[in-house]
Design a protein around this nucleic acid. Structure first.
Length: 961
RNA sequence: GGUCCCGUAGCUCAGGUGGUUAGAGCGCGCGGCUGAUAACCGCGAGGUCGGAGGUUCGAGUCCUCCCGGGACCA
């Protein structure tokens, strides 16, 4: 029987599938965006401009989950801004030069294996096609290097060629991976730091800096990698635990009858000893040993030293640190050399003796204090870490260490101490020590001549610090501390690297006297050749082509020069993209937003700020957003050895990019974030709920079209106007959260709203939507609300889950809608939607609902008197003011409470009673008979007959007036 | 080793300037519906707010130390 009536109902229907099948279907929408040129249209429209300048990932290997987090966040911002009507600029970039790629190319075995593996992975044919070419280039480069050595320009050219191809390959791979994430951009408009145009522009930037006096040549100790035979920048250093020698020795005072006690963990640097540093504020003791010798060390360290060295003896005197300044000591290794006592603030007694061996050629602090005292910067070690002849030539008592490694030389130094009788103790110590980030090998400090960018020239640092405080917004606000500290503390920028794969620093050297210089004119001329397509011009072309007519050496007046082949630090490549890309391509300067991980305060944000300030005298960004790192479910960093790595491809292939993106939106990204199976499971659940909500909305709009069927707000039913008022709130808040980049609040707001909709509003709407007259006011009113909710929800979610919302968008019943949701405009809802009074009333009604529901639950679960709420009758004696509220909404109370009968009475009767804040409630099974069509119970309805409400509906009318 | 950040229910997150029984959603348990159905609805149980001290009439919120995790730096 009931079946007959079912056909007369307006049951929800839609073709929008319940299951997303994201891994399969997402690429369809990605292709759609590309084919329709969605982003091209967004970046070309007439509207205010919004720039997000992309920080370039390194083109070596697959993207990891951190890259995915980063690009997803950027995509949220860009898509949102586009939705709000901006013309958006988002040019994806890649960082191509540098040691890791050069190393990969020269380490053929590992690399070839990796490339072979790539052929088996899910990559495009285009990528596979590139592999062979890369492999043969690598082979050629390696063969040439073995035959002719690294310094040969042709070898360098071949290494560069192989590197270029290798980098291009990974750019292609990563591009596909970002595409699969759903990033909305113009894939034909990207930037590579190895683009000739960018290299040329970068060379010009360097020329300009040279002209303006920022660039100088300096000789100072720097972290040096023996493996890569290059100085390293701070960003290329990692710290690991390392076991080092712990050497205690004595140095004889030439002015007094005592020795000083010195401690070092780098015995090999004793060859470069030029002084001993004491702390100006510290007290020192004169300690008499049983053998009669007196030894000086820090008073604070007395107990520790006694214990460590097992010394018996007694304190026979005290001296202030300042008293040692200028005192002469014998060099630890060489009797014929003198090392003076000096004062340094950094000397402490935490470890060692409170007396520090100073080698200005082997340590940064040593160098700094050496400058103050005019000490020689002595660094008798070559690029492989072997001693040079200067190590022996400095004395008449050489240790003959030329050509020996620092380890062997260090042993000889210790033997010498023993010969001299000044050796005390040799032990071992484990401590954190700088290592080469690629080779994981300990670094040494070695003084070399390098090109520097001065941070204090023209007050660059000061200007940058001011800009940090005044001209840039930092999100989260605390991140300003990081950038400020990193700019304040950073040393002058070491620009030069002795490698092949990079942008050349086209310095020239006088063949007569060795004077080395940068000539702006050379650089500008070279830039033209690079721009024309020859990145290797500095290698392949004769110097005459670039050197100005009649150029003479400033030192000796000579006219015979050679080229130098140092390359630029890769941080200069990426740091200068604010000029080479933003200005070079006439995009605009500064960028509205930079958005990267917080390691970039030392890296890209810092480098970009320096270049930007020096070049444009204002920062390259208006807002800088930082995110944390991705950790595993237990909060540990991901690592191959722990086996807890979650690659983005895993998530995308298993759940879909929208799920990965929804995860990004759900977490507090300004801190470190976690990912793992349980977390993803929760996200998948949330995704399903959201998707189902879209589906339910669509399914109730199958016979509705906007704008034709859209009802005026003022004609709508109160419940539906309340729904619109809530929607207005949510929509306004959502935009606020987007504007504040608080995506996790946005996610929670929207998700909780979805939950609220489905448990309250949708639930209460069912009778009206399903059983009322299809075209009647009641149903159209509800549909109008649903339509607005759907539209608003899709727009609000579209930056986060663009594939799902795109799919749903195709079903949204709007005439002449934009081809893609990404092309739609998310405008503010009309103020007329807002109705605070309705919101107040309904929040009370909802609270009342929650007050009776436990009683209904008893009826259902314990007493088995009802099944669904529609079987129930509610009687209430309202308290205080609440009676008036209930009266006002009397026609809608059944609907709101989901029951068949709702009675306001002074004597509530029923099977279950409950007293609450709003009234005394009694609930029971509804009386009378159940309408076979709408399933509602009516007190005086003859059995088997259709209720008056349904009768009206069948006649195309609404029962309630 | 130094500096900074984080640590609230199983999970993800809220909890201005310290003040009633610490909140949400999910998950979990129990129940309903079978006209959103590999959906939907209801009810319920979960937290010594990392630990220990301290300041205070009163602390998740302020201070100190410790533990765990992370980042940056040397």
């Amino acid at each position: 029987m009931a079946k007959d009536y079912k056909d007369t109902l307006n049951m929800p229907r839609t073709d929008f599938p319940m299951r997303g099948r994201l891994p399969k279907r997402e690429p369809l929408f990605q292709r759609k965006w590309e084919e329709k040129g969605v982003f091209k249209r967004l970046k070309e429209r007439e509207a205010p401009l919004f720039i997000l300048h992309d920080g370039p990932p390194y083109s070596n290997g697959h993207i990891h989950i951190g890259h995915a987090l980063n690009k997803a966040l950027k995509d949220f911002v860009v898509r949102y801004k586009a939705l709000r009507g901006y013309r958006v600029s988002f040019v994806l970039g890649w960082d191509n030069h540098g040691m890791p790629i050069e190393k990969a190319v020269l380490d053929s075995k590992k690399t070839l294996k990796r490339l072979k593996n790539l052929l088996k992975e899910k990559v495009s044919d285009e990528v596979k096609g590139m592999v062979e070419d890369v492999v043969s280039s690598i082979d050629e480069a390696i063969k040439a290097k073995e035959e002719r050595g690294f310094e040969d320009p042709e070898v360098k050219r071949l290494i560069r060629e192989a590197s270029r191809k290798y980098a291009a390959l990974w750019v292609e791979v990563q591009k596909e991976e970002f595409k699969r994430l759903g990033v909305l951009t113009d894939w034909e408009d990207i930037y590579l730091t190895m683009d000739p145009e960018i290299e040329a522009k970068e060379t010009e930037v360097l020329a300009k800096f040279t002209e303006e006096g920022y660039i100088y040549r300096g000789y100072m100790p720097l972290p040096w990698s023996r493996e890569s035979q290059s100085a390293l920048a701070m960003a290329e250093i990692e710290y690991y635990e390392k076991e080092s020698p712990s050497l205690w020795f004595l140095a004889k005072s030439l002015d007094n009858d005592y020795y000083i006690l010195v401690w070092t963990t780098t015995p090999w640097t004793l060859f470069g000893n030029r002084a001993f540093a004491f702390s100006p504020g510290m007290e020192y003791v004169l300690f008499r040993l049983p053998d009669g010798r007196t030894v000086v060390f820090s008073a604070e360290a007395l107990d520790r030293i006694r214990e460590t060295l097992g010394w018996e003896g007694e304190v026979v005197g005290r001296k202030k640190g300042t008293e040692f300044e200028g005192e002469k000591f014998q060099h630890p290794l060489f009797k014929d050399r003198v090392s003076p006592g000096i004062l340094a603030d950094f000397v402490s007694a935490e470890e060692g003796s409170g007396i520090v061996h100073i080698a200005p050629g082997h340590g940064k602090e040593d160098y700094e204090i050496g400058k103050v005292y005019g000490l020689e910067v002595f660094s008798p070690v070559d690029e492989r870490g072997n001693f040079t002849k200067e190590a022996d030539e400095q004395t008449a008592h050489p240790l003959n260490v030329v050509g020996l490694s620092i380890e062997e030389g260090g042993k000889r130094a210790i033997e010498r101490l023993k010969e001299l009788g000044t050796f005390v103790k040799l032990g071992k110590i484990r401590h954190s020590y700088p290592h080469d980030w690629r080779y994981k090998k300990p670094l040494i400090f070695r003084a070399t001549s390098q090109w520097f960018l001065s941070l204090d020239h023209k007050d660059l640092r000061e200007r940058a610090l001011k800009a940090i405080l005044n001209d840039v917004k930092w999100h989260p606000p605390e991140s300003i501390n990081r950038i400020y500290a990193s700019v304040k503390e950073r040393p002058d920028w070491v620009l030069s690297r002795q490698r092949a794969w990079g942008v050349f620093i086209p310095a020239v050297v006088c063949n007569n006297c060795g004077w080395e210089t940068l000539v702006p004119e050379v650089m500008y001329r070279l830039a033209e050749d690079i721009r024309a397509g020859n990145s290797d011009a500095w290698l392949t072309e004769p110097l005459d082509r670039y050197l100005p007519e009649g150029f003479k050496c400033e030192e000796c007046g000579g006219g015979d020069f050679s080229k130098k082949y140092d390359i630029l630090d890769v941080w200069f490549d990426s740091g200068s993209t604010c000029i080479t890309v933003l200005k070079g391509r006439n995009i605009g300067y500064p960028s509205d937003v930079y958005l990267e991980g917080w390691d970039q305060h030392r890296g890209w944000f810092n480098a970009s700020l320096m270049v930007g300030m020096a070049h444009e005298d204002r920062p390259p960004y208006r807002t800088v957003i930082t995110h944390g790192f991705v950790l595993d479910e237990q909060g540990r960093a991901m690592s191959k050895s722990l086996g807890n790595v979650v690659p983005p491809s895993y998530v995308i292939e298993k759940y879909g990019a929208d799920v990965l993106r929804l995860w990004v939106a759900s977490v507090e990204y300004t801190q470190d974030v976690r990912i793992g199976e349980e977390i993803l499971k929760r996200i998948v659940d949330a995704y399903r709920k959201i998707r189902n909500t879209f589906r339910y909305l669509l399914s109730n709009l199958y016979d509705f079209t906007a704008p034709t069927d859209v009802m005026d707000v003022n004609d709508m039913l109160p419940v539906d106007r309340y729904a619109l008022s809530r929607l207005h709130d949510v929509s306004t808040k959502a935009k606020e959260y987007y504007d504040a980049y608080e995506f996790n609040r946005l996610y929670r707001l929207l998700y909780n709203y979805v939950v609220e909709l489905s448990s309250f509003y949708f639930e209460s709407l069912k009778d009206r939507l399903y059983t009322w007259a299809p075209q009647g006011r009641g149903r159209r009113s509800a549909q109008t609300a649903l339509y607005y909710i759907l539209r608003e929800l899709l727009l609000a979610f579209s930056p986060i889950i663009p594939h799902t919302t795109e799919e749903a968008w195709e079903y949204v019943p709007i005439e002449n809608k934009p081809e893609s949701i990404a092309l739609a405009l998310w405008e503010d809802l009309p103020e007329s939607f807002k109705d605070p009074e309705l919101e107040r009333d309904f929040s009370t009604l909802v609270a009342m609902r929650e007050e009776v529901y436990p009683a209904l639950e008893v009826l259902r679960r314990d007493r088995k008197l009802i099944g669904q709420n529609l079987d129930a009758r509610v009687e209430v004696k309202p308290k205080g003011e609440y009676g008036r509220l209930l009266e006002r909404y009397l026609p809608y109370l059944n609907e709101l409470f989901g029951v068949s009968q709702f009675v306001i009475t002074d004597e509530p009767a029923g099977d279950e009673r409950v007293e609450g804040e709003y009234g005394i409630w009694a609930v029971s099974h509804a009386k009378g008979n159940k309408c076979p069509r709408c399933w509602m119970w009516w007190e005086d309805l003859p059995e088997g007959e259709v209720c008056p409400k349904c009768k009206a509906a069948l006649e195309g009318r609404d029962y309630v007036t």
